[in-house]
Design a protein around this nucleic acid. Structure first.
Length: 271
DNA sequence: CGCCAGGGTCTCG
DNA sequence: CGAGACCATGGC
C-alpha cells in the first residue's frame, strides 16, 4: 500500500511532478522513473521496478509502524490524513545537499532552489528533460556566486563548503552508514550548514534511521498546541527528546505524519 | 508592507 | 547550557 501523493508532497523530496494523466514523473538518482498510484498500489510505468520498490520503501511494514503510534487524537487525525505515506530511501548526498538549502525556506522555495541547481549543474538524463541532482564534485567546483544565482542566499556558503568536504573524501557519506544513530548524527553535524534538525532529516530520509525526529517550526507548534503541558516554551532538543521517547523506534514516521497533516490543514489552528 | 518559512552559527550571559 | 543577533530570499 502506498499513498503516492502524500509520499511525494510531504516535504521529504522535491523534484517529482504530477503529469496531466495523474502519473508522477521524476528521477531516482540518475534514472528516469514514471510511477502511478493505482488504488494504493505502486505502478511503475517507466524505469526499473526493483529500483522503484527500493526507493519507495515498499518493504516498510506500515501496519506494524502504525501499531507503534500513540493513540491520542492528534496522532490519529494525522494517521487518518496521511495513511500510506512512506519514508523513502533517498541518495545520501542529494538528501544532505537539499536539506542544507532548506533552512528558513518554505517547501516551494526548496523545490525552486533544487530545480535551479539541477538545471545549472546536473547531468542530463536520457528520455527526460529533468536533470540529476548535481554530485558533490560538480558543486565543489562552482563558485559561491554561482550558487547564489540559484537563489540560495546565505546557504550558498554552507553548501559549497560541505560539497568540498564530500568531494575531497574528507567526509565519507557512504562509510558513515556503519555508524550508529548517535555517531551518524555527530558526523553529520560536523558539516557546514548542518545542525541537529538538518542532520535528523538526512538520517531519516537518506539513511533510513526511522527513529530520527526532526523538530522544525511546525513540529514545535504541534508540540506547544497538543503535547506540552505547563512550563515555558521548550527548546527543540527538549521537544525531540520528549516526543522521540514517546513515539519509540519509528518516531520519524510519526513526525512526518504530524508535520504533513499540520502543514496541509494550516490556518485552522494557531497558537 | 510585515511576517514567516522543514535553521545554523556566533556571541554573550 | 540558553537566549539573541544575524544571515538572504520569496510568497502571501
Amino acid at each position: 500500500m502506498i499513498n503516492l501523493r502524500a509520499t511525494l508532497e510531504c516535504g521529504q523530496v522535491f523534484h517529482w511532478r504530477e503529469r496531466t494523466d495523474g502519473a508522477w514523473e521524476g528521477l531516482i538518482g540518475e534514472h528516469r522513473a514514471v510511477v502511478r498510484d493505482s488504488d494504493g498500489r505502486l505502478e511503475v510505468l517507466d524505469g526499473d521496478k526493483d529500483t522503484a520498490a527500493e526507493y519507495f520503501a515498499l518493504d516498510h511494514d506500515l501496519e506494524e509502524i502504525y501499531a507503534g503510534f500513540p493513540r491520542d487524537a492528534t496522532m490519529l487525525a494525522a494517521l487518518d490524513f496521511c495513511r500510506g505515506l512512506r519514508i523513502i530511501r533517498q541518495p545520501d548526498w542529494e538528501c544532505l545537499a537539499t536539506f542544507i538549502t532548506s533552512s528558513m525556506k518554505q517547501v516551494t522555495h526548496i523545490r525552486q532552489m533544487s530545480q535551479a541547481l539541477r538545471a545549472r549543474f546536473g547531468r542530463a538524463v536520457r528520455g527526460t528533460d529533468q536533470r540529476a541532482y548535481p554530485d558533490a564534485a560538480a558543486l565543489a567546483s562552482a563558485t559561491e556566486a554561482d550558487l547564489r544565482a540559484c537563489g540560495l542566499g546565505y546557504r550558498a556558503k554552507h553548501l559549497l563548503a560541505t560539497a568540498r568536504r564530500v568531494a575531497s573524501g574528507q567526509a565519507d557519506l557512504a562509510g558513515w552508514r556503519r555508524l550508529d544513530d548517535e555517531g551518524l548524527r555527530e558526523a553529520l553535524c560536523t558539516l557546514p550548514g548542518v545542525g541537529r534538525k538538518v542532520a535528523n532529516c538526512v538520517m531519516l530520509f537518506g539513511y533510513e534511521r526511522l527513529a530520527a525526529f526532526p523538530v522544525d517550526t511546525w513540529v514545535a507548534r504541534i508540540m506547544r498546541n497538543h503535547y506540552w503541558r505547563g512550563g515555558r516554551k521548550p527548546t527543540p532538543l527538549a521537544i525531540e527528546r520528549r516526543l522521540a521517547g514517546r513515539f519509540g523506534p519509528q518516531a520519524g514516521y510519526a513526525q512526518q505524519y504530524l508535520f504533513h497533516h499540520a502543514r496541509m490543514t494550516k490556518r485552522r489552528e494557531r497558537p
